[in-house]
Design a protein around this nucleic acid. Structure first.
Lengths: 146, 146
DNA sequence: TATTGTTATACTCTATAACTATA
DNA sequence: TATAGTTATAGAGTATAACAATA
């Protein structure tokens, strides 16, 4: 039973370390977590309405208004007219925004390599497999309790 | 290289799942993350000055004032006079606060068992070992870049 | 002179509700 | 009538700066 607690502590520690790395990107880019998250979604989905961003981020449309205001102010996105729906706007990354998204992807890949690059491939495979099992168990637990 | 990205994605997913579980505790207790964190530290350290809480939590003393105000209002802690330093107060958990801390510890242990209880012991040992390596690498990386 | 905790002020993220323009 | 996005308002967490009481 003690082994179990040790393992969870390590997962929590790892989660903290990953969070810390994201914090570093925030400092360097001058952006906040919420704005980075919006840019990340925008990078994956392409120009989007604020409604769809609100759904993807799991926040209210009002909140998206504020985030887009800030990202427009800092020059990362612009509001473009929707081609067919005059009520809607298409939030679109600017050149600066696209560069930030590229940096974010690179930082993500760099982290993956530095985090796991030195682990022997055989052990890495075992790690991924065990993590898969763990996540399966965890996911079922979450479904039961929610 | 692709395997690396997959592995990091799983760690991020796991971190999200752990966060989700904490959110459940928040809903059930009516507390927020910041207040739970303070209670957690208090449970580990015992009655503490606000200064030491600020250092443990990595926030400003002013912030602790607000968190202790809220936790005192909800009946989880009280401000007691410091026995030797009349400037300082000893933030002390009430009976209700102590119960919440016990629930939090139990929830933590329960999570550990549900998360890892179904994993065969041999695999669990491998998991912990691999995670140790991973965290070593990650920690060194963090030190270099900070 | 240094330290503990407070008041004052401000910014970010988040929410609900009411409203405007458009579909 | 329904939807996209806004203004209005509010609460939580965070910060810096100035200040009081005490060390």
């Amino acid at each position: 039973m003690e082994t179990l607690t040790v393992a969870l502590d390590k997962v929590l520690l790892l989660a903290t370390l990953v969070t810390t790395d994201l914090a570093r990107f925030e400092r360097e880019s001058g952006l906040t977590t919420a704005r980075i998250h919006l840019l990340w979604v925008l990078g994956a989905a392409g120009p989007s309405t604020q409604k769809s961003l609100a759904e993807a981020l799991g926040v209210t449309p009002r909140n998206v208004t504020g985030l887009v205001d800030a990202l427009a102010q800092s020059g990362h996105v612009s509001r473009e007219p929707h081609p067919t729906d005059r009520r809607a706007t298409l939030v679109t990354p600017t050149r600066k925004g696209r560069k930030t998204i590229r940096d974010l992807v690179e930082s993500h890949e760099e982290l993956a390599q530095q985090l796991f690059g030195a682990v022997p491939p055989r052990r890495l495979a075992a790690f991924v497999t065990t993590l898969d099992e763990t996540i399966d168990i965890f996911s079922r637990l979450m479904e039961e309790t929610s």
